[in-house]
Design a protein around this nucleic acid. Structure first.
Lengths: 119, 119
DNA sequence: TACCGTTATATTTGCCCGAACATAACGAAG
DNA sequence: CTTCGTTATGTTCGGGCAAATATAACGGTA
């Protein structure tokens, strides 16, 4: 393979990884980061803002995950002290931890494949 | 993780894998299959037709690969006995073999990750 | 009870990417 | 020198999906 690519190692293996259900995508890197931001901020709207994402899109993603999972990943309440808020359920926290680990194994795979291009 | 997913194992890990250069995507599963069809048919247009792809799109993909690689992956000639044709160069055949193997390693990775969801 | 920031949801707008269409050149063969 | 199937390339068109916009409801608090 090394003969095919430039000496400066300009080429690399890359990819996308996700978990999908029968109907739709369930969890990918974008949804993972959204969950992590919800975990950090306690709010869907704050998480969306920090990611440069519209609230509607963020809410649609959360809705997709909550309806597909056996148990919701995000619990939210409208109204109240500061307008409301959202937090990860235990299932959500577990999903974040597990998929983050899966993503890291995938990145290790990609690094190994990139190295292989030049071995 | 097993508590998050249904007993019927409806969820699975999936993904996309490709090799990218400094400017653009270089080789993915779609381009790989195109190269394999060119290899089998000796023609860009026949390969495109069997894949249900427009000739222009197929040619654009071939052009992208040929301009990014150190050596062209596909050699083609217009005109002649039966209008011309196209064939993989040795570099093209090598790229097909190597990326096909990479893709199969990726599919093994996905199968292992899917199994892990329910372990 | 007015206010505030959030959740929740529908509708409209806009834009980009791919599909479709069009055209030219090539070169052996008859 | 016409025909044929292919390579080669530009341009136009349309649909689908993301973005933007709009609106309502919620429920503590002051």
């Amino acid at each position: 393979m090394h003969e095919l690519f430039a000496e400066n190692q300009a080429f690399r293996a890359n990819g996308r990884l996700w978990i999908e259900g029968p109907a739709d995508r369930f969890l990918g890197i974008g949804r993972l980061e959204l969950l992590e931001h919800i975990q950090a901020t306690g709010s869907i709207s704050k998480a969306a803002k920090t990611m440069g994402m519209s609230y509607k899109k963020a809410w649609d993603l959360v809705s997709s995950m909550n309806t597909q999972a056996r148990q919701p990943l995000v619990g939210a309440q409208a109204g109240g002290a500061h307008g409301g808020g959202a937090a990860l359920t235990p299932a959500g926290a577990q999903a974040v931890a597990e998929f983050r680990a899966m993503q890291e194994r995938f990145e290790a795979f990609l690094a190994a494949e990139t190295a292989r291009l030049y071995q």
